[in-house]
Amino acid sequence: MSAPAGTRGGPGIAPLAAGRRPTWGRRLRGRQDRNLWFGLFVLPFLAGLLVFVYVPIAWSAYLSFFEARATVTPTKFVGWANYSYLLSDPEFRSSLLVFVAFAVLIVPLTYVCSLGLALLLSGLRVAQAFFRSVFFIPTAVSYVIAAMIWRISFFNGGRFGLINSMLRQLGGSNIDWLGGANYGYWVALVSLRLWLQVGFYMILLIAGLNRIPQETYEAAAIDGAAGWRLLRYITLPQLRATSAAVLMLLLINAFQAFDEFWNLLSGVNGTYPPYGRPPLVHLFVISLGGSNQDLGLGGAGTMILTAIIVVFGVAQNWLTNRGVERDER
C-alpha cells in the first residue's frame, strides 16, 4: 500500500504551497493533487462500501423481482409477487410488531438505567473506577454466551433453573419462561440486553455529564435548586445532545436484534418458534435458514426493511432539525 504512495512523494507539497500563493495554474494543479490524495485515502473504504453494501443491495433489489430459489441468477420474473407475499404474511407483520414492542421496552429502559448508573457514579469519592468497570464489563460478553446463561441457568423453565428454584423455595411453582405460553420470554430478552448494553451507554452518558460545566451547577445551587429539580432543569437539558445520540443508537441496535433472540428461543436443528420473531430473524428463517434458499423473498424483505429505516431516518432528521430551529428561536 505504501509503495505507490512513496513514488508520489515529490509533488505532495504542491497543494499547500499553491494554497498560500494562488497563481491560477498552480491552484488548479493543487486542487487536482488534493483530489488525488483525497481519492487515494477514501478509495479502500468507498470501494468496500460499494462492493459489499451498495452493489449487493442493488443485486438483491433485482433478485426480489424473481423467483430466486437456491440460485443467485434467476430467470423467472415474478414482478411484485415476493413483496405482496411478504406484506400479506401475518408473520412478517407480526415481526415488525415484535420489533416495536422490543424497542418500546428496551430503549427507554436502557436509557433510564444507564442514566441512573451514571448519576449514581458521578462524584463518587471511593471505588468509582471499580463500580464503573463492573457495570461496563458485560459489554465485552457476546450475546451468544449471555443467552446461554439466561437460557440454561437463569430462565430455564425446568426445575433446575435459578429463578424457578428460588420461586419454589418461596412457595411458588415453576414458570415456563421461554416456552411462549406466557410473556416470560420478554423478561429474559429484555433483561439480557439490558445487562449487556447498559454499561456502554452509561459511559456515553458519563462523558456527557462531564461536559456539563461545573459553574452551571454552582449557579443553580446558589438559586437553591437541588435533587430532582437540579436533574430536571439543569442536567437533562444540558444532556440533550448526548441523550439524542444514545436513543438513536439504542433504536438502531434494537432494529438489528438477532443474536439473543436466536440463541434464547431457537429449537433443535435451526427451528424457530412463531413467537418472539424480530424482523431479521423472520427474514433469516424464510430465506436462508430453511432447506429452501429463497433469495428472492429475502431480497424483498431486505428492501422493505431498508425502506422502513430510510423513511424513519428522514423523519427523525426532520424532527431533530425542527427541534434545533425551535431552540434557536
Binding site: V53, V55, I57, I252, Q256, L288, L295, G299, V310, G313
Partner: peptide
C-alpha cells in the same frame, strides 16, 4: 452516515449473495 443507519445486519442477505 446513511450506512451507519442501515447497518450491515439488516443487509445480511445481499451481502451473503455477494
Amino acid at each position: 452516515i446513511f450506512t451507519l443507519m442501515v447497518p450491515a445486519a439488516v443487509t445480511f442477505i445481499p451481502t451473503f449473495v455477494m
